[in-house]
Simulated assay, not measured.
Amino acid sequence: MATASAPSSFAHLPSSRHELAQRWELAREPIADASSGPKLRYLVGELSHLAEPVRRPFRRIEVAPAAEIRTVMLLPGFATHPIRMRYMARQLERAGHKVKRWGLGFNFGPTEDNIRYLERRLIEVHERYGREVHLVGWSLGGLFAREIAKRHPDRVAKVVTMGSPFSGNPRANNAWRAYQFVTGHRVDQPPIQTDICDKPPVPTVALWSPRDGIVSARSACGRACERDRAVALRCTHLGFTYSPEAIGAVLRELDAA
């Protein structure tokens, strides 16, 4: 089955001064309630990511052969490219798993077009390898993973989210203003019909961290009715894609039934 061309990642970015002004107003909206993102010290802690290129050559992650080979699709976070998940992909491949990109380039938020494309991408990967796909989504990528799992539960083995804000107030994070500027819609009014809190009808695991400087720990952990399990880690939000702890957690979820 051939996959249709992916919609452009940049198609819904502001294209005129008027639209730019509208996006700016969205980004400047006052907070209507008491919800807020993680504390400033955790946000500052995200700067440790800048030292990652220096540390990485000296790090060795122990990866055991997979108990069973899985087909995995990685979905990147908001405003990031799949290349940001390449290090994790390599570690999963070292274990023997088949790792596939989501095919959409930068993640600049949901649209009907990119959701439909992801559905076709999931169907293509499922049919190519003849087994259900494990979806691993970082931050906003985890919301995409949950959504396509709701639409095609027969093709998804498990959803693993990493620091994804699927629970509680959509503004309980430190990125919602940037999100509204980039996407052109309010964070609590996505241009698709969905309830992000609803659990997909497949095993759903939420990896979260109390040290997350971007997304509220409560939002990423969720309530018991919104996921099957929650696993606490000690990494930063940006560290979900490269920390040995996070990669080890993902490998364990792939090994689990």
Rank of each mutant, 00 (worst) to 15 (best):
K158W: 07
V182W: 00
S35D: 13
L43H: 07
P53H: 12
P190M: 08
S36I: 00
L251Q: 10
R55H: 14
G248F: 09
A246D: 02
F58V: 01
R155T: 14
E119W: 00
A178F: 08
N174D: 03
G130Y: 12
W176C: 02
L207T: 06
E147Q: 11
N173R: 05
S164A: 15
I196F: 15
N107S: 06
A2E: 14
T80E: 05
R151N: 09
K158H: 14
V44T: 07
V159H: 03
K98Q: 11
W102L: 01
G137Q: 09
H185T: 10
H152Y: 09
R229D: 10
S243N: 04
G163D: 08
A2Q: 12
I214R: 01
V231E: 07
G248K: 10
I115S: 02
P165D: 10
H126C: 03
F108W: 10
E245Y: 05
L26Q: 03
S36F: 09
L74E: 06
A249R: 09
K98N: 14
Y179V: 06
K39A: 14
I192T: 03
S209T: 11
L207N: 03
P190C: 01
F58M: 04
G103I: 04
F106A: 00
R120C: 04
G163W: 08
L40N: 03
A175K: 01
G105K: 02
M85A: 14
Y117D: 04
G141Q: 07
E68V: 04
F181N: 03
L13I: 08
P203C: 11
R17N: 12
D255P: 00
A172K: 01
D212Y: 02
V250P: 00
G105M: 02
L47V: 02
G96C: 07
R171H: 12
M1C: 04
E25W: 14
P7Y: 05
H126W: 15
A175E: 01
G109P: 03
N114R: 08
N114V: 11
Q180Y: 10
Y42H: 12
R70W: 05
H18K: 13
R151V: 12
A79V: 14
L207P: 00
P191I: 11
Q180P: 00
S219F: 04
S139M: 09
R223W: 10
A95C: 10
R56Q: 15
S8N: 09
I148S: 02
L233H: 06
F108K: 00
